[in-house]
Design a protein around this nucleic acid. Structure first.
Lengths: 146, 146
DNA sequence: GTGTACTCTATCAAGAAAGTAGACTATCTT
DNA sequence: AAGATAGTCTACTTTCTTGATAGAGTACAC
């Protein structure tokens, strides 16, 4: 399962991508609009800033704003930032690789093979899920609903 | 990430599917062969027994053995048994469904849509990963390696 | 220089994950 | 029936992570 941090981060990013066209958005505004505990959200936005996705402005008229193109911000990166590896086993991750102690031969492990395929499919899908893509999807879904 | 329990369960099941043709296999044998803490493995095998995948025999000549066809035991079920839902968000699970508090409209949520697709792909892949399939895969991989 | 708004450090409670200990029960062999 | 074998059950411990909250500090605008 995703952590709340990762989920809140995604929700906040979508919010910023949608409402950030007229300058910085207040933390308090995002917190209220998206029902996220404000203090918790502060830490999350700070992480996203350190990661280079967002920037902020202090004082009156301040707030957070996107500094990347919504088409260049994807859910795979967000998930990795907050929850670490996407794969379900350490032996099929790229950055967090760890050998299974009990595995005799990694190259012929049938379990590993399955989870490697799962990982690859998931990463591909999450990389495609950019902010731009998510917003587009929402518009399509509302269109169908009507 | 998978819990150790789920991973050990998968490894133990593959062991039983491979070596269970001449009667029950001792917990201690599996623990030693697969490098799993024995006491921990006991609890795991008990869970698998309660779930109807394994049966056991006490006393001399006893041990655990599969009571399902290896083609009918898949990793999706094992993962659900030990780790709960496979999906990354509670709002896209079947059995563990929970509404997102902050979600205004689930049907048009772009984030949900992405994680629904991820879940479906993962479940499909894990359902296909039966014990029979895993063992077959291992044979194929060793074949290629030589 | 006052108010606004982000930043940083510390702390906390609850729960889960991973593993350990030990007594108990069922079964087989002789 | 005794004694060994092997799974069953209950309880506990330890460590880590998650999801927060509190409050002082810093930067900026007017």
């Amino acid at each position: 399962m995703l952590s709340k941090k990762a989920k809140y981060a995604m929700v906040a990013l979508v919010h910023l991508a949608k409402h950030g066209n007229d300058g910085p958005v207040l933390i308090s505004r995002i917190a209220e609009a998206e029902h996220i505990p404000q203090k918790f959200l502060e830490a999350i936005l700070l992480d996203l800033k350190r990661d280079g996705v967002l920037a902020s402005k202090k004082g009156k008229g301040g707030g957070y704003y996107l500094i990347k193109d919504p088409a260049d911000v994807n859910m795979a990166d967000v998930m990795r930032l907050f929850d670490g590896a996407i794969a379900l086993l350490p032996c099929v991750t790229y950055k967090y690789y760890e050998r299974c102690e009990e595995c005799k031969d990694e190259e012929t492990c049938g379990i590993r093979e399955t989870f490697l395929l799962v990982r690859n499919e998931t990463v591909e899908r999450l990389k495609a899920a950019t902010l731009a893509h998510i917003i587009q999807t929402e518009q399509n879904l509302s269109g169908k609903k009507r």
